[in-house]
Design a protein around this nucleic acid. Sequence first.
DNA 1: CTGGATCCTTTTCGATACTG
DNA 2: CAGTATCGAAAAGGATCCAG
Lengths: 120, 120
Amino acid sequence: MAQSKEIDVLVEEIIARVADRWTMVVLEALEERGTMRFTELSHEIPEISQKMLTKTVRQMERDGLVKRKVYAVIPPKVEYTLTDLGRGLSEAFCGVWIWAEKNHARIHEARKKFDAKGER
Amino acid sequence: MAQSKEIDVLVEEIIARVADRWTMVVLEALEERGTMRFTELSHEIPEISQKMLTKTVRQMERDGLVKRKVYAVIPPKVEYTLTDLGRGLSEAFCGVWIWAEKNHARIHEARKKFDAKGER
DNA sequence: CTGGATCCTTTTCGATACTG
DNA sequence: CAGTATCGAAAAGGATCCAG
């Protein structure tokens, strides 16, 4: 049963959005540590800029992957938690993480070989 | 058993590279149809430009995900095939595709809700 | 047929400064 | 604390032309 082409395009768009560099890392962090505040996230992922973190969590919220809970206190407090949808994605992506952990050495090796060839 | 931080960064780099928009689509195409020529790929994925396709398959070759076989004929003939590494990734990523197929409707729904809120 | 090279536009991203 | 706004650098991407 062939999927329609339109569905394919929709699915591809989801993959592209969701398989984003930072989305994956934030998803992992939230999966491992549960509910987290904005600053906790940025400490957990030092490589991300504040701007990208804001953008990423907003996008994830929009896509229904995380729940954003704002406390009306001063100073502000905002907590991020994975939704069921987000946890499902995290689980689905688990296989890719495992694959990457197992094979990153092979990839780096392949790159070295490839680059060595080109230098001749 | 906590993984070292350096490994994490290596793995994240792999994820980022491999979870690229076009890499995923090319991977899928090659997994489904086996060996393919350059033009076949570009026909199978009409949305990709020639430049991006070239770049993507080069990168995948460098990372050891595809094998590139050049036939010394005129006109030129180049075939692309997944390596074991590539097939492994495709398999690992399979879970994410299934998740996306199952849940794309929920995501689009979540987006609609989110956008509706913002318009007030 | 399979690209490489070039030019140009668009998008992404980081750094910085500022606010409730 | 948790952002928004803005600027400029850098990267991605498309279009076109050319070559082996």
